[in-house]
Amino acid sequence: MAKKVNKDKMSFLDHLEELRWLLVRSSIGILVMASATFFVSDFIFDQIIFGPVDPQFITYRLFCQVSQFFGVDGLCVEEFPFVIQNTDMEGQISMLIWTCITAGFILAFPYILYLVWSFVSPALYDNEKKNAKLFIFISSILFFVGVLFGYFIIVPLSVNFFATFTISDVIKNEFNLSSYMGMIKTSVLATGLLFELPIVIYFLAKLGLVTDEFLRKYRKYAIIIILLVAAIVTPPDVISQIIVSIPILLIYEASIFIAAAVVRNQLKDAKQSTRIQ
């Protein structure tokens, strides 16, 4: 068991011990949720993992309606000319295990946030410690929204693009299972963590490492990077790039407002401290 120590007077080794137990508890939480997802693995694979390979997937139908409204071709899907195959002896069992672990991490994310907050809370002020529930709630919502954005937007656009792209009619697409699953996991987890940007900016602003002026100064470079990323992960049409770019741009703008609020509060606290002295 982790020994109880006065967190206000912890040595470096005590901090390492706390960090070790944070990792242990996080791993246990992930494994518990992964075990739970194992019992619904059929639903996860048939309805969720392989949902985007169905031309009737909800995203494709919505994109088709949008493209027809704007008079743009290329977003309506009738069929996907590819198959997903497994070429490794232990491929399917390995994929089952890692998929359950990934799902376990996603479901256990709020608990992991709670553990992280407990680890860093001794370094915070009392008024900041009171915001623990708000921090966990907002961070969890942002992560889950990012996961859903990756699954319902990034993944279908990627599947549509790579399934229909061809350099010759001679070549037939037969995607490897690990390649397809890697694309799913990367898209979902990357966007989930990307949507945590406002929280990251908040803490960086609290530490004085980032300011709203810095973010505004480099906004144009951020926009270029966002557009490039959107161009890479989407089919080569303007509508798809806009669909992906807008939420990420909004997150960046929200981060600027968060950094500005942190700077204002720090200046306000500094003025109050000067008056008291």
Rank of each mutant, 00 (worst) to 15 (best):
M1H: 08
A2N: 10
K3C: 06
N6C: 07
F12E: 09
L13M: 12
D14P: 05
H15G: 11
L16S: 11
E17M: 05
G29R: 08
I30F: 08
L31P: 04
M33K: 06
S35W: 06
A36R: 03
F38D: 10
S41E: 14
D42L: 03
I44F: 11
F50W: 09
P52L: 11
V53L: 12
P55L: 09
Q56C: 11
F57K: 12
I58H: 14
I58L: 14
R61F: 09
L62Y: 13
Q65E: 14
S67A: 14
F70C: 05
G71I: 07
V72N: 05
V77A: 09
E78S: 04
E78Q: 04
P81G: 10
V83L: 05
N86F: 12
M89P: 00
G91Q: 12
I93T: 14
I93L: 13
S94L: 14
T99N: 13
T99L: 13
T99H: 08
I101Q: 12
I101A: 13
A108I: 14
F109K: 13
F109V: 10
F109S: 15
Y111S: 09
I112Y: 08
I112Q: 06
L113N: 08
Y114T: 12
V116Q: 04
W117T: 08
W117E: 09
F119Q: 05
S121A: 09
S121I: 00
P122K: 02
K129W: 05
K130G: 01
K130N: 02
K133T: 11
K133A: 14
L134F: 11
I136H: 08
I136R: 10
F137K: 11
I141T: 13
V145D: 05
G146R: 06
V147C: 07
F149A: 03
G150F: 13
Y151L: 08
Y151W: 06
F152V: 03
F152E: 09
F152R: 08
F152D: 05
I153R: 06
I154Q: 02
L157D: 03
V159H: 10
A163P: 07
S168T: 12
D169F: 10
V170R: 11
F175E: 03
Y180K: 05
G182I: 02
I184A: 07
K185T: 11
V188W: 02
A190P: 06
G192N: 10
G192S: 08
L193F: 15
L197M: 07
P198Y: 00
I199E: 03
I201D: 03
L204W: 01
D212S: 12
R216E: 02
K217H: 04
Y221L: 01
Y221A: 01
A222K: 00
I225M: 03
I226Q: 00
V229E: 01
A230K: 00
I232A: 00
I232Y: 00
P236D: 02
D237F: 01
V238C: 01
I239Q: 06
I239D: 06
V244P: 00
S245F: 01
S245P: 01
S245H: 02
I246M: 03
I246K: 00
P247Q: 10
P247L: 07
I248N: 00
A254Q: 03
A254P: 04
A254G: 15
S255R: 02
I256C: 03
V262R: 04
R264A: 14
L267F: 09
K268Y: 11
Q277H: 15
